[in-house]
Amino acid sequence: MSKEESFEYESLQDPQTIKELINGIIEGFEKGRIVLSSNGSAITMNPSNLLKFSVKAKKKGETSKLELKISWKETSKVNVRTNDLIKVST
């Protein structure tokens, strides 16, 4: 089983700073490489091909929440079993 890597960040910010933080990530999408690091350990993400993008918003009383989620499969090969290929012989 492959090792799970993870990264977490949490802070309080004003809208201007949120914009700067999101821009830092947007730049990564443009380059096809986003590095997230913390205390010496880094996780590198390579968004490419098909990305799933979902937006969720919720308002309850005084609390508002906006969730942006982007997920994808990172692989250079198409996942197929070679011996499953149909053999056609004459």
Partner: peptide, 11 residues
């Protein structure tokens, strides 16, 4: 907190 990199932004 330690320094963190969020893409090109350093916290």
């Amino acid at each position: 907190k330690y320094e963190q990199m969020l893409g090109s932004v350093e916290t």
